[in-house]
Amino acid sequence: MDYFVQQLINGITLGSIYGLIAIGYTMVFGIVGMVNFAHGDVFMVSAFVALIAFLILTTWLGVTSVALSLFLMLVAAMLFTSLINWVIERVAYRPLRGSFRLAPLISAIGMSIFLSNFVQVSQGPLNKSVPPLVQREFVLFNRNNYPVTLSYKQLIIWGITAVLLLAFWYLVARTRLGRAQRACEQDKKMAALVGIDVDRTIAITFVIAAALAAVAGTMYVMYYGVVSFSDGFVPGVKAFTAAVLGGIGSLPGAVVGGLLIGLIETLWSAYFSIDYKDVAAFSILAITLIFLPQGLFGRPDVEKV
């Protein structure tokens, strides 16, 4: 039981990270109908930005306040990753809008290969590890000499995820921008006719997706303290699984899906086999798509004859 509670805590933490990336997939798929293959790599790039920001803050500027440096890391990662994703959308996807359906997908795969190799070439192929930023943890309860702990960094991840999700939910559900996004999702031509700047709306969607991925990337660096150029693909696919599980196009679905995937992966590693933990995630992806293609919160897709 104690072991289970501990795994639950770890799983929710991992799931928060997946959920944040999953939102990016869901939003982009919703609005342009493409699986943004490079999104996992955008997440990885953001983790590198956060890492570099951390090194600048601690080794050069000598910032000692954990809260301040974490905040600045987040801001830097969100800012630069948003800019990078904006450029990616502008260069690699926008010229292909409205053309052949496979073209943006191939372009995204190419961008994914480009990004991971760009980081490999520019930062080197080794794992980059940093000393832990936040170390304290508190023991929830301790029975049979098995302490169930909740670390500060886990709490920080939960807190930041919750706050940002609320903020973005507000943005999408309650603002003009959110309405424009939903209108573009339904019918781009019609949205353009009623005066919505479709290109701009899509660009902002990519920026928001990148910003959330950057939050995930910063959390990832803080939590694990290590990142490498190849860390984009697998979290990317898992976050996509989360988006699909929750129902693609649905924001709460992405979060719930992320939490579920995080929990399943953690519990699977804890109770079955850590070697096959990715098989668990991929199997869920396949099973969901085959038996529940609309996901938990998505709209069913009726075949139109």
């Binding site: 052949f100 073209a103 190419g110």
Partner: peptide
């Protein structure tokens, strides 16, 4: 090698999407 490979994929798609 792979950096250019990825770049070429994007470039060729933009040049000739089909």
């Amino acid at each position: 090698r792979m950096l250019l490979f990825g770049f070429a994929m994007v470039a060729i798609m933009i040049w000739r999407p089909r």
